[in-house]
Structures are given as structure tokens and as C-alpha cells.
Design a binder for these strands. Structure first.
Lengths: 260, 260
DNA sequence: ACTTTCAGTTCGTTC
DNA sequence: GAACGAAGTGAAAGT
């Protein structure tokens, strides 16, 4: 921990910020401030107590007391500017491309901490659409008995078909995989089926594979004689093990106290 | 500032966390940890130094040293659990609906701060799609000389038309507004035009209005004899004033030092 | 560098 | 509560 400063005056704060903002340090500022944003859109945030975080890659976050997402942010700041003016400390963070700026006017700063975090680890996520593709390719029978994958990412004039297969009767099957299927997914699948029917001059089955489904989308599918197969997320992430202590499921949780 | 504790041992940390996690305090923890997530998907994050934030509405964030977005999160935690086990402090945050859990295993904690932030202010944003709609309605000639709005949100079997208007020759015009237009936007507009042409039995103009455009989407438009009008974001947010000191644009920024 | 597609999307509004 | 669409979407992969 490089610096921990409680209730700094603006001159002191300004000095610290100028020293650390543009370098690879994680800077946290708790304070009372107003915030303006101009760029792709425009926003203003009236006076309130907030937590500012400047990360080591120059990303800037303005967090309020609630909501998991920041009130304001800047994914990448090209230049910081700090000055003391009219009884307030002004922090400006600008980036080009797109040209946008976040301006923070501090009325009071209760805490500044400066730290250098070391974290080379990567976040590995299982359960994406691509994982479902792979599961199907490894184990086509999870979709349907007798199914054989012919080709993946087959190109048609309407785009790329996720999985192209043959069923147990040796008929062609077009499979579209979606994590969150909607009306457009159905239209897409229909377009693929139309293309393949034209190419092979016959009736082709179209199957939408997804971990969840809504009544409305199911209706659209049935209107077009398309099919739906549900895949359980557990099947997709089954080979996935948590890092520590075999914490694999949600079962061994014994709540001691509850939030809110 | 309620608490600032440097390098607490696990028992001390555990005590503080149990006291404040489930109450309306903002808790920040800097420390070395691994993180697992299980729920809608599954993820694991190997050992690294990170910043954890528990907000006053029980939202939980796990931030790494870079990237504006959190590595792991929980928008709303229903129950926290803290225990010291095998030389590590384990923090579990679970929510139901969807049922998911974030588990954090601390190997070391360098700082815990507890604060109560007061912020009732609302974030006001200008420049959304609805703002473009309103600008058109107030000043249709920003799109084209002689344009008159006939109806907004006109219903067709294909969905709702953003703006339905007549041009200076009294011909009907279908206007689709999009902040980030893509291929689907073009298809949508085409569907609306088809519907209106059927209803009025004649040729109808279709215009896509957007603050930006890509070459590819423009091609799609031209292939279908649809038109594109660019609106400047400045026109949409022109009546918008920043909170302090008349900071309206990006012009008065004088960089003192640059980031990265 | 631009385009396209997905996301533990999230976050609204509306029905 | 489900459904539909927008986001200062962001991020990644392909071109």
C-alpha cells in the first residue's frame, strides 16, 4: 500500500493525484463531488458522496453507494488534469477516439489510497455459446439420437450455419445455437433452412439449440415448422471445476446472515 | 469514514466484515485472492491482487488492476458468509433468482475501509435514441426541408414505426431512428416500408436517421433504395448544460500530463 | 482499423 | 413476471 491519506486538503490531494494518476497505480478516492460527462452522449451527476477508482491501465470509474455499475466511467483515459479552483478540486479525464471527457468537481475528499495491484491471472469462463457448439461437436447425441455432425460454420449466402448435420434417417439438419434466443434467431434459422433447401432441393429440418426458451419464440418456431432442443447449462460446464476446495455447486452454502 | 484497517489478520478482518457486509455500508477490501463464480455460467479467477467493493445495496464487485469492468460481480447479494479456514479468509456472496454465487478466497488482506456514502442525486443523460426522436418531432426540418411529422410510433404488423411523415411533395416517408444502426436495422426499415407500401398501394420512401453510419450498412440501404440522414449528436443534446462553470464542450481542456 | 456477433450482457419499459 | 428493445453498451474474433 503506497499511500493512505485521510481528509487531505486540496493542495495535498492535488499533489498526490498529480504524482500517481498517470502512472501504473490503483488510486481510490472517497469524496463529495459532482460529475459531468460529454462525448458520445452527455450526462450530469449532482453533488453526492462517491468512490472514484483510477486503475493501472488508466481506466476511471465513478461509483455511487449502490448499483453494481458505475455512475460514470472512462474505459481508457489519454490525459488527466488536476487543478484546485474556487474551493474545489477539479479532475478531468479525457480520451480521444471517441473524443469524450469526464469532469469531477470535488467539494470534499475524505480518503485517498494508492496501491499497486499485481494480477496476471486470467478469468476463465465456461458456459458461452462457443462451449455449447463444442459440446454438440463432441457429443452430437446430446441433441438427438443418431445425429452426426457434417460440418461446422458452413457458409451460405445468408451467413454461417452453426452446425450442419445429418439425422438418423440421413436427412440434413441445420442447427442454430443461441444462449438467448429471440425472434431474430428464428428468422436467421429460417433463412439458413431456406438456403439449404434451395441448395439441396428438398425439405430440411431446422433446430434451435438453447439453454432457455420463451413461449413467444417457441410459437415463432412452430409456425415455421422449426424445432427446439434445450441443453442444460450443467451439461455444457460439467467438466468445469472450481479452483479451491472442490467448491463446485451452490449446495454447500450455509448462510450465516443475510444482506439487506 | 467508519473504519480504516491496514494489514488486518484474518480474525480481525472476519470480525469487521461480519459487522458491516450485511449493513448499509460501502466496504472496500484490497487483497490477494482467488475467485470462483457459479450460476448462469461458471468462472474461475486465479490468485491475484484485487479490489473488492461491497456497496450499500449489497452489490459486490471484484476489480482487477485494469479494465473498467469488474472481473467478477454480483448485482444483488441475498446472503453473505464469512469464515476463516485453512489459512485463508473465505467470503461467499449468494443470490437467488438467478441462483448464483461468488466465492472469494483471500490469502492476504492489505486494507479494509468502511464508509457510508450519501448520494441521493440522479444521473441525467442526454443523447439516447428517444432524444433523437424528440428532436425530430420538435424540428422535423433537421431531417429534410419541408418534412412534416404525421404520426409517431405508428403500428404496423411488422412493429412500430418510429416516425411516420410526409415530405414537401406530400409523399409518405417512413423514418427509423437508430443510435447504432446495423444490418438488422435495414431489414427492419425495409419491413416497415413494405407494410406501408401495401397499405397505401404506392412507392414509399424509407429513411434511416442515425448519428453514425458504416459503409457496409450504407450499402445495404442503397441496395434497397433506402436513404440515410446523419444527425449530429450536438443537435440532439444542444439544450443540455453541464452542472458547473459552463463546462459544455471538450474544447477548454488543457492537458497537463498524459496517462499511460 | 473496421465489421460482426456475443455477453454470467445489464437495464429499462410495457404488457 | 415475461417480453422486447436500447446501451456513453463492452469485448472478442474475423476481415
Amino acid at each position: 500500500m503506497e499511500e493512505i491519506i485521510e481528509n487531505p486538503d486540496f493542495d495535498e490531494a492535488s499533489e498526490i493525484l498529480k504524482e500517481y494518476l498517470s502512472r501504473e497505480y490503483t488510486v481510490q478516492i472517497n469524496g463529495l463531488c459532482t460529475v459531468n460527462y460529454t462525448g458520445r452522449a452527455a450526462s450530469k451527476l449532482d453533488r453526492g458522496e462517491r468512490l472514484l477508482i483510477k486503475k493501472q491501465d488508466s481506466a476511471l470509474l465513478v461509483h455511487g453507494p449502490d448499483n453494481y455499475q458505475p455512475k460514470n466511467w472512462q474505459p481508457e483515459v489519454d490525459s488527466f488534469n488536476v487543478e484546485v479552483r474556487d474551493e474545489s478540486l477539479v479532475l478531468k479525464a479525457r480520451r480521444r477516439n471517441p473524443d469524450e471527457m469526464v469532469e469531477v468537481y470535488f467539494d470534499n475528499i475524505s480518503l485517498i489510497t494508492v496501491d499497486q495491484l499485481v494480477d496476471k491471472s486470467e478469468l476463465k469462463i465456461a458456459g458461452h455459446e462457443v462451449d455449447i457448439h463444442e459440446s454438440i461437436e463432441e457429443e452430437p447425441e446430446m441433441i438427438e439420437e443418431g445425429l452426426k455432425v457434417v460440418e461446422r460454420e458452413r457458409e451460405t449466402p445468408a451467413g454461417f450455419i452453426d452446425v450442419f448435420a445429418r439425422d438418423k434417417n440421413d436427412e440434413y439438419v441445420v442447427i442454430e445455437v443461441k444462449r438467448n434466443p429471440d425472434y431474430n434467431t428464428v428468422l436467421q434459422l429460417q433463412r439458413y433452412v431456406d438456403e439449404i433447401e434451395e441448395e439441396f432441393n428438398g425439405n430440411i429440418r431446422g433446430i434451435l439449440v438453447a439453454p432457455k426458451m420463451t413461449d413467444k419464440v417457441l410459437e415463432y418456431l412452430e409456425e415455421r415448422d422449426l424445432e427446439f432442443i434445450e441443453v442444460a447449462m450443467e451439461d455444457v460446464i460439467s467438466d468445469y471445476e472450481a479452483v479451491d476446495n472442490g467448491q463446485k455447486g451452490l449446495s454447500d452454502f450455509d448462510a450465516e446472515y443475510s444482506a439487506k
